[in-house]
Amino acid sequence: MWRSWKFWTVMVAISGLVVMLAYGFFTDPKKVPSPLVGHMAPDFAVERLGGGEKLSLGSLRGTPVILNFWASWCLACRDEAHLLEAVHREYGVEKKALRVIGIAVQDDVQKAQAFARQYRKTYFLALDNAQGEISLNYGLYGVPETFFIDREGMIRYKQIGALTPAVMEAQVPRLIAGVGSGKAKEPK
């Protein structure tokens, strides 16, 4: 039996199927690696939620940026709201080592402002336009999603789903230290 080519053909075919099934079972179809990681973050210009200060990503060159996409209707965004605010206060306000920007998608000003008040968000918040230009340019699958952009403007990491303390502990020091920064390619 061990020397039969039929036996080994069937075994190879079954092993291949088992490997593919295992890959399918243990892979989250939503955790698709973003082609934007390692590329320059697409630039955008927005106005602070409710009017006032204007900001463009390009103007922040030299400062690492945590760019968070959220929405007032998004449940997972509530889980990460306090964490983002805490990182902003510690690294943005006290140490002035990075900027946190929140872009609300598919939302309206009143609901987004109410959400910001409820979770005492003090970092820069803005609203994507109705066409979702910023969201589409960043290839969003949903909310929340967060991009860690280094001081050169390159996307170093993308988090799909709510941020966790473990992600922040791993990514923020790397972002501030500029670990792994290299030459970024422009997205097509």
Partner: peptide, 24 residues
């Protein structure tokens, strides 16, 4: 977005390439 890109005169291949560059 696709409609705007079509009206701008971009080819089907260009439009697909744009979304592949964003989403893979």
């Amino acid at each position: 977005k696709v409609r705007r890109m079509v009206i701008e005169g971009q080819s089907d291949e260009d439009i697909r390439a744009y979304f592949v560059s964003r989403y893979g």
